[in-house]
Write a protein that binds this DNA or RNA. Structure first.
Lengths: 153, 153
DNA sequence: TGCAGCCTTGCATACTTATACAGCCGTAAT
DNA sequence: ATTACGGCTGTATAAGTATGCAAGGCTGCA
């Protein structure tokens, strides 16, 4: 019976607005499926539905609503990156330019972004150059010297 | 302060797995935003995030579950691009940095170029960052607020 | 027939999210 | 300065969702 119920749920969710599990329960009952909220919670989990501002919806694409993103825990330390790939660091106005070995810009920029420094507004990476944008000249100096320290360590 | 918090939330949700509002609260605290779960509930509502098997995620396309059937008219507008891919907008001197989801920088920059704004001297796109160069600080502010409006819509 | 293993479900309850309400703060009009 | 209003927030709590546990029902095997 479970799979028929799953189909009914998919259908209801696709065609109409279902705001919560109790509403879903009542609607299913009208169709002859009589189960409790607990079961629906499990069904929804199995069907990988997601809940947004407009009620429940089917998983996106063929996979699912949101890609399997990596959990935020083990940062590849910026210092290591700079040490491995960095070649030079220079400041220009509110910008800092980091030269790296060929292909090193991307990972360095990513590590820098990951660091989340407030002095960094954003980074743009080419092949061997990372452009770091800072809010102003003072903070660019700040960033420059910090990066330079890593480079020279 | 609310607006910056929204940016931070978008970013966290795009880049990592956020399973619930309390986890979000703890992560935001590390970044300097100290608010309660109630506020986050409201933020999430305003940002129209949805929650699925893999945590919270950004709105899909321009709408969510219920797609407002739209006719395909010409090239996607900048506003749509920003809405789909944009995560944050910040100004630094005469530059504006637009953070996007991975891979979103290129299309956003293209749409921005296509727009032909006189306040935009040029754009450079990385993987997830667009650097917009403006003639001066005043016009950068102009551009920033315009983009921010699109982002917050 | 009796038993073991597995699946599905309901109940009770823990956990998570939303919201009514009130306080605070800044702005604009008086 | 005073008052009125509106936005943002925290507190307390209601509303909604997930899950440990145990019961009941299959199936396959001795």
């Amino acid at each position: 019976m479970k799979y028929q119920r799953h189909n009914a749920i998919r259908e209801l969710v696709a065609q109409s607005l279902v705001s919560n599990q109790d509403e879903l329960r009542r609607r299913l009952r009208r169709k002859g499926f009589e189960v409790t909220q607990a079961t629906l919670s499990r069904d929804i989990h199995e069907l990988r539905l997601s809940k947004g501002p407009s009620g429940y919806s089917l998983p996106h694409g063929s996979g699912n609503g949101s890609a399997p993103v990596v959990v935020d825990d083990g940062p590849p330390s910026l210092a290591e990156m700079i040490e491995s790939f960095g070649l030079r660091v220079r400041q220009a106005m509110n910008q800092v330019v980091v030269g790296t070995v060929m292909g090193g810009a991307q990972p360095v920029a990513a590590a820098l972004d990951h660091e989340g420094w407030p002095e960094v507004v954003g980074t743009v990476a080419g092949d061997d150059t990372v452009l770091v944008i800072c809010p102003d000249i003072r903070r660019a100096s700040e960033v420059e010297s910090r990066l330079r320290t890593m480079l020279e360590s």
